[in-house]
Design a protein around this nucleic acid. Structure first.
Length: 642
RNA sequence: GCCCACAUAGCUCAGAUGGUAGAGCACUCCCUUGGUAAGGGAGAGGUCACUGGUUCAAUUCCAGUUGUGGGCACCA
């Protein structure tokens, strides 16, 4: 009986007996035979050594294909599990998937792994690769598999099998003395994994990702088709580390944290200048876009938070206090209830809508201690928050208005790669399903009206409404969720907001919650990492340093600095008794975009010698010309009159 | 909050099987006025995160607490 194998290019080849994927790859070329890791048979991934006993469309998957790399990583996880079982037989194995850039495996073991164990395990993994153990697929009876795992003390594996759908076959993969439950496919043998892998870190992880379950020990690793790619990845990790905003915070003297205020920023003068630059920029943009700005109390009575639903939903994460007169006050974790108070303080007409109320409100949230991370996750932060009160008919247009504003703003900061996620109702929520149906529909319509691409993020909405999340990609390809837009048909009613409609009747307005930077603190962290500290001129908290070569130029340097300062440039004169090389080095490390060097020559000619950060080039300019140029550069990329 | 690790001068880090500590940079003073990423010398700077325990003696060993880092869980 012969089998006809059809290739992706439309050609086909007959085999006399049922060939394996390996046979087919070998028949095409020796290098393909060597690089093959799996085969797709009629759209399904198979092991290379599984015989194909009927006509089929196939595609050979190599170690350099995306799916091939994923398979390598999955195999690396298995090899790691085998190594761990050999070295620490009392360990139970649980799950070990491939992930972006690598793999992990979760283990249950009474004794914790220590960092030195990673070297041992990695060493043993290399030995297993050298042993080149054949990997074989076995189909087991469900109950036998459960019994088998119970018998060898692998309780977690037994549980996993019990949860596999009845129709699914139970497949086990055997390599050496190690047998692992797995859907597959896998490499033909451990040798084919190669050695371009490295164990990277040790971490705790909950069984099945649920914090009510046992804490397992997770070992992370990275794995690649070849050593060159592994090295490139490790280099990239180092690059990311070099961009750490916490490092720039110290180096550039922007902010610090200390024990007495965990998760709260001490902004230093330069950091606060940057902060204010962002706030002022956003304020101008929002004013131009028809927003009004307000300010609402930090502390408000518990009853208001109960009415809004925050107390019930997030009470444990709110800071609150008892006063001497027996009231419970809560520090605001959000600005929305305050904005509703401003809205309803006056009688509102449909003619007032949409009413766009903004606030640079500082909010406090008692975040779990383990979540805190530099500026990225703090307990006290400032939102560029706004609430648009509008009618249901205005939702689409107002949403579009927010998207337009947001995209223009992100572009000004050098973020062009934006994508949107649409998140619908969460399990823990307020309001009726009918209201949710309406708000989800309205937001979906709005995002479609913008014509922007979006992906779905089911069940991740806010407790009062569905939301859009705006995710930007930074200079080294990392994604950050910053902006958000939420349609809320719940809070306005809960807090009693109303307006008089055209019909003379009272109506409840819709409230759109939106933030563009999100958290100013976090956005600054992202900017620092995006620009690796070298902020563009208009954002720099210290834009120009005028550095003298000799003290004879001191008076002139101060004059230059004053001139620039008078034009709104953030400038400093460095008259210290140091060599110019020393000053250049120091201000370069501080990421000052422009150093103006002045010596006797410049003082005589009334010029400055300019050096831009990151360049060794020098440019001599007339002072007046330089001032004009810097004033122009000081505007934001898309300036707004104010 | 959970797991693992870490905490020494303003910063970056060294250090001792237990006898109260050291470098570089930064800081102060002196010399040097030098043309584009560190000129030279001197000085000052520490409750070795905090609280207990063991010990003749603890910064070092043990326990707890706090904070930080990497994950997990959480993120209105």
């Amino acid at each position: 009986m012969s089998v006809t194998i059809s290739f992706p290019d439309g050609k086909s080849k007959d085999f006399i007996q049922a060939p394996t994927g390996q046979d087919i790859a070998d028949a095409i070329s020796t290098s393909l035979g060597r690089n093959a890791v799996a085969i797709r048979v009629n759209g399904r991934m198979w092991d290379l050594q599984r015989p194909i006993d009927a006509d089929a469309n196939i595609e050979i998957i190599t170690r350099n294909d995306d799916e091939g790399i994923e398979l390598l990583r999955h195999d690396a996880a298995h090899v790691m599990a085998e190594a761990v079982k050999e070295l620490y037989p009392d360990t139970q194995v649980t799950i070990g998937p491939a992930i972006e850039h690598g793999f992990y495996y979760d283990f249950a073991r009474a004794e914790p792994f220590v960092p030195e164990d990673l070297d041992r395990i990695e060493q043993r993994m290399r030995e297993i690769v050298d042993r080149d153990e054949p990997i074989s697929r076995e189909v087991w009876d469900r109950q036998e598999a459960i019994n088998f795992y119970r018998q060898i003390g692998e309780e977690y594996k037994a549980q996993i099998i019990e949860d596999i759908d009845a129709g699914e076959p139970i497949t086990l993969y055997r390599q050496g003395n190690f047998v692992d439950l797995c859907r597959g496919p896998h490499l033909p043998s451990t040798g084919r994994l190669g050695k371009a892998f490295k164990l990277t870190k040790l971490a705790g992880a909950y069984w099945r990702g649920d914090s009510r379950n046992a804490m397992l020990q997770r070992i992370y690793g990275t794995a690649w088709p070849d050593a060159k790619q592994l090295k490139a990845y490790l280099t990239q990790l180092e690059e990311a580390e070099k961009r750490d905003h916490r490092k720039f915070g110290k180096q550039m003297d922007l902010f610090h944290f200390q024990e007495e205020a965990p998760g709260a920023v001490f902004w230093h003068a330069k950091g606060w200048t940057l902060f204010q630059t962002l706030v002022n920029y956003m304020r101008r943009k929002q004013n131009a876009a028809g927003y009004i700005e307000v300010n609402t109390p930090e502390l408000m009575d518990r009853s208001l938070w109960e009415a809004s639903g925050h107390w019930q939903t997030f009470g444990e994460n709110m800071f609150h206090m008892e006063t001497a007169d027996d009231r419970t006050l809560a520090i605001k974790p959000m600005n929305c209830p305050g904005h509703v108070q401003v809205f309803k303080h006056d009688l509102r007409s449909y003619r007032d809508l949409p009413m766009r109320i903004s606030e640079f409100g500082k909010v406090h949230r008692y975040e779990p201690s383990g979540a805190l991370h530099g500026l990225m996750r703090v307990r006290a932060f400032t939102q560029d928050d706004a609430h648009v009160f509008c009618t249901e008919q205005q939702i689409t247009e107002e949403s579009k208005h927010v998207c337009d504003l947001l995209l223009g703003i992100y572009r000004d900061f050098g973020f062009d790669d934006i994508h949107i996620k649409y998140a619908d109702r969460p399990t823990n929520r307020v309001g009726s399903d009918a209201v949710w149906d309406a708000s989800e529909k309205a937001l979906l319509q709005a995002v479609e009206a913008t014509g922007l691409q979006y992906s779905l993020n089911p069940g991740e909405g806010a407790f009062y409404g569905p939301k859009l999340e705006f995710v930007l990609r930074d200079a080294i390809g990392r994604d950050w969720q910053c902006g958000t837009l939420q349609v809320d048909l719940n809070l306005p009613a809960r807090l009693g907001a109303q307006y008089i409609g055209e019909d003379g009747q009272k109506h409840t307005p819709v409230m759109l919650h939106r933030a563009l930077f999100g958290s100013l603190e976090r956005f600054i962290g992202i900017l620092l990492e995006h620009y690796a500290g070298a902020l563009p001129f208009w954002l720099s908290p210290m834009q120009i340093v005028v550095a003298t070569v000799v003290s004879d130029a001191d008076a002139y340097a101060e004059q230059v600095a004053h001139m620039l300062q008078a034009k709104g440039i953030k400038v400093e004169a460095d008259l210290r008794n140091e060599k110019i090389s020393y000053k250049v080095r120091e201000h370069s490390l501080q990421k000052v975009p422009i150093i103006l060097v002045v010596g006797r020559r410049e003082a005589e000619d009334r010029t400055v010698t300019m050096r831009r950060l990151g360049s060794k080039q020098q440019e001599n300019l007339a002072l007046n010309e330089a001032v004009t140029r810097f004033v122009a550069d000081n505007l934001s990329p898309t300036p707004v009159a104010n």
